[in-house]
Simulated assay, not measured.
Amino acid sequence: MVQGQPIIDVTLDGIETRKNTRFQDKQLGALKLPVYSGDDDISGVIEVRMNKQKKIEHLGIRVELIGRIEILNDQKQSSDFMSMSRELEPQGFLFEDKTYKFQFQKFEKQYESYYGNTVRLRYYLKVYMVRSYGKVQKEVDFAVLIPQPELEEQPQTSLKLEVGIEECLHIDFEYFKSRYHLRDVVTGKVNFYLVKIKIKYMELAVIRKEQYGQGPQQQTDNETLVKYELMDGCPQKGEVIPIRLYLSGVDVTPSVKNVSGKFSVKYILNLILVDEDDRRYFKQQEITIYRKK
């Protein structure tokens, strides 16, 4: 009878009382991960079970804490931005199930976890036993969230833009803020000064733009997260249409720029006018989204 491989289990300390967060990953589906931030340590217990074997020869057992950026459709561009390692057992033999305690104190939390369409920034523990013919390993993911109180404290500026088609259309619109927290409300107004085309409706969309790669190899993935109708029917000259869009129901994350030289995540407000001939007129404006303390 062929014996099975040893089994590795990892139990994190304090997991019952630790806050969780959810991510929707394109490949892995819905994820619910424990959250670490600030000066949090990560610690726990690792159990290596013999799985009906009497003796296991190995070349060492280790635990690693890894921060990794994965470019999902080009693994050559993926890389670790952080790695810490602890030896649990030097080369030798196991004759019975063993448990090991581990701790990584106040590990560096440089970037926030991110699970996108083309990019994944993940933190995970990897426990592995090296054997002469390969590895037995177990990975456990967790999340790092980073509040940005400095963005909350800075004074806000409004964003004003104009859309014009000579002698046919002249509007301007204003968003009252340029920075929004994850559960904020986008507010503003649209002023119609000249309307000589028959507008069918107007809508506001939130677009997430993932950019990865460098220089000529840079690629962009655009995803429309939500579309919200601001107006149905043709406006009159002088009409003012209010803008109010709640971000709490939209799958937004903090904006990030050039993370470890690998990727950026931007958010765009796209104001769209559609006329009776289904021609579309639009104006895009980047906004900053941040995590409140």
Score class of each variant (00 low, 15 high):
Leu28Val: 15
Arg49Glu: 01
Ile272Tyr: 00
Leu161Glu: 15
Asp39His: 10
Thr99Pro: 05
Gly188Tyr: 01
Gln154His: 08
Thr11Asp: 04
Phe263Gly: 00
Tyr212Ser: 06
Lys138His: 04
Ile15Cys: 01
Glu89Asn: 15
Tyr111Arg: 01
Glu229Leu: 04
Ile66Arg: 04
Tyr290His: 08
Glu16Asp: 11
Ile199Glu: 08
Leu169Val: 10
Lys54Thr: 12
Asn270Leu: 14
Tyr212Trp: 06
Ile69Gln: 02
Arg62Ala: 11
Gly164Ala: 12
Lys32His: 10
Lys266Ile: 12
Ser43Val: 11
Tyr201Glu: 13
Leu65Phe: 08
Lys160Asn: 13
Arg208Thr: 05
Ala143Arg: 12
Leu194Cys: 12
Lys52His: 09
Ile42Ala: 06
Gly38Gln: 10
Ile56Glu: 09
Ser264Ala: 03
Glu47Ser: 10
Ile66Phe: 06
Gly215Tyr: 15
Ser158Ala: 08
Phe282Thr: 14
Thr11Gln: 07
Gln3Leu: 14
Gln3Arg: 13
Tyr290Asp: 08
Glu239Gln: 08
Gly215Leu: 15
Tyr175Pro: 03
Val163Tyr: 14
Ile7His: 07
Phe102Ser: 09
Ile15Glu: 00
Phe176Thr: 13
Asn117Gly: 15
Gly188Trp: 06
Pro6Gly: 04
Gln285Cys: 02
Arg244Trp: 02
Arg280Ser: 09
Asp141Glu: 15
Glu150Tyr: 08
Ile8Cys: 11
Ile61Arg: 03
Lys106Gln: 12
